[in-house]
């Protein structure tokens, strides 16, 4: 079976999430393992949220928000860029690599951009291989045996 990376996305309510909605309405394909948490603004995303995702075995984390200058709360996306820069440093030291975390700008009208960005991230993660902290998920047969 080919390796499918688990990706966690934090999407802001005003741009990233609306972009995901647009991609869905246009019936564009993007990986099903991309799970989105809607936040009001990327400024809400704390370094601990990102690290916790990696601790729980996610292979990649993407923050998807407004273009610089478009933030509904003025500077939330600029703060998020700062957070991402520092957490990338932590990921490098930890040996996971900074490429597992990225921040993207997608406006509410850019459904196709959303799909493209997520697909490109998935391809990169497939090339990188799984997160070493990942706990092996039980197979269907193992789960059934437990029941």
């Amino acid at each position: 079976m080919s390796y499918e990376p688990d990706i966690l996305g934090f999407a802001c309510n005003w741009c990233g999430y609306a972009g995901a909605d647009g991609a869905g309405q246009a019936k564009l394909q993007y990986p099903t393992n991309f799970r989105i948490i809607r936040v009001m603004c990327l400024g809400r995303v704390d370094p601990s949220f990102i690290l916790r995702a990696f601790e729980d075995g996610y292979d990649g984390v993407a923050l998807i928000g407004c273009h610089i200058g478009d933030c509904h709360y003025v500077s939330g996306n600029i703060n998020a860029q700062d957070v991402v820069k520092h957490v990338q440093g932590i990921l490098d030291t930890m040996g996971l690599g900074r490429a597992r975390l990225r921040i993207e700008e997608v406006s509410s009208a850019e459904g196709p951009v959303f799909a493209r960005v997520v697909n490109a991230f998935k391809d990169e993660l497939v090339a990188m291989g799984p997160n070493p902290l990942k706990v092996a998920k039980p197979t269907f047969a193992q789960e059934e045996a437990q029941l």
Partner: peptide
Amino acid sequence: NPSLKQDR
């Protein structure tokens, strides 16, 4: 986690 390979 023992499988972590750091680069510190």
